[in-house]
Nucleic acid binder design. Structure first.
Lengths: 227, 227
DNA sequence: CGGTGGGTTAACGCCAGGTGAACATTGTCG
DNA sequence: CGACAATGTTCACCTGGCGTTAACCCACCG
């Protein structure tokens, strides 16, 4: 997965040095040599990160940053500047910058910061998938074949346990431990929860994903048509 | 809107100075004085940002950071260190840090970086958007489908918190912390505010954006028609 | 036949959450 | 100063979802 970056910098030598180094590490670079051009480029197409020099012809870096944010652009912005003054840093952060690096800097550090910025924003979609069954862990939603499933908290726990194990079967004890930890309730509560989970997951579909292996446990993901 | 922060730092004097300053700016601080304690605290409860010293007793900052990420914790982490060596910076970023600040630093810069990290779509001093719901942060106005919404200060804080988290759900504790910081009121005040927020946001529309996931929390942005 | 492991269904009680109104606090303006 | 509006807080009550229990069903196997 390539990082796509925009560098706005008027010093041609510095720009070339930076771009050359970044391209070697696998970062794809666009380049603009003045503020106005940078703004236009940033608005015209998507970048994962923007590097902004502050002292630029036509429009300075802070103005570019401010205008981008005013347009609703949320791309992570790293300010580059030879100005080490506190006031410049504060001004940059206040117009919406995400990081600030003082020249001269070491190129590996720049790369590390670029990576950190692009990762944070990439919305780590935390999901599990088995066949057409999808669990979105961060949004806490489950869906099958695009249709959203309604799960109770216990049903969710149960399904998560099954999906993590899939395609291996999970025995009764492990499921009980997943829900209640040490102190198990008596009676056949687990059966009821499993039943409800089946209704939620398999009811409206031709293929049953939840399978019981008698004497072994329950398994998710074996592909068998329903009888 | 309170930022909730964890400082892991063994130098008591420095820690006190930092905490005192941060609290003045409205940032609520937890504090751990060694790596192991810091790790436990970070795993035990939610923070918006974590400040990690590198040279710590029991477990150094990079190890803490690494272990946190291995546990799936994605809280933004800012490394603080007197080490200015490139190798230390690179090592920190490679274990999942988001920023790195060399001691001694100026407190206002620290605050600016904390803010940038905690606002998830940071800086973007301007708009938050979820579906047709838009918050204009600079003008402090919210609208849905073009129609302006009337929000009380608390309602605003609540909505901002939900929008920043969206589509992830936010639990009760985090909402309470966002409004009141440390000192929570008793009784069911939060319920009332949520109720009013719902009236303001969802009352006149066919699609309800605010949804409660029983036992989990409240979520913004699930697209479901109202019953 | 009855035992055993599992499936199905209905009933019950608890409690997190929802609701509307009353009360308290603050600030503004005539 | 006093009235009023806007907001935050508290209270009492309602509701529905969820977890649990129990009772019954079925199929397979000795």
């Amino acid at each position: 997965m390539h990082i796509h970056l925009l560098l706005v910098e008027d010093n041609i030598d510095l720009a070339n040095t930076v771009i050359e180094y970044l391209e070697i590490t696998g970062i794809v670079c666009d380049h603009a040599s003045n503020g106005q051009m940078g703004l236009n480029l940033a608005l015209a197409q998507h970048h994962d990160v923007i590097l902004l020099d502050i002292l630029l012809p036509r429009m300075n870096g802070q103005q570019v940053c401010k205008k981008l944010r005013e347009h609703g652009n949320q791309t992570p912005i790293l300010m580059l500047s030879s100005l080490d003054a506190l006031a410049d840093k504060l001004a940059s952060f206040s117009v919406g910058a995400d990081d600030y690096l003082v020249k001269p800097f070491e190129l590996p550090e720049l790369v590390a910061r670029i990576r950190a910025l692009s990762l944070r924003r990439s919305g780590q979609a935390n999901r599990l998938q088995v066949a057409d069954l999808i669990m979105d862990l961060s949004a806490r939603k489950a869906s099958r074949n695009g249709q959203e499933l309604h799960l109770s908290p216990t049903g969710w726990t149960l399904l998560e346990c099954l999906m993590r194990a899939s395609p291996a079967p999970v025995n009764r004890e492990r499921l009980e431990a997943a829900i209640w930890g040490d102190k198990l309730p008596d009676s056949n509560t687990l059966k009821v929860h499993m039943h409800r989970l089946r209704k939620a997951v398999d009811k409206d579909f031709a293929v049953a994903l939840i399978q019981t292996l008698p004497g072994i446990g329950v398994q998710l993901g074996a592909i068998c048509a329903k009888g």
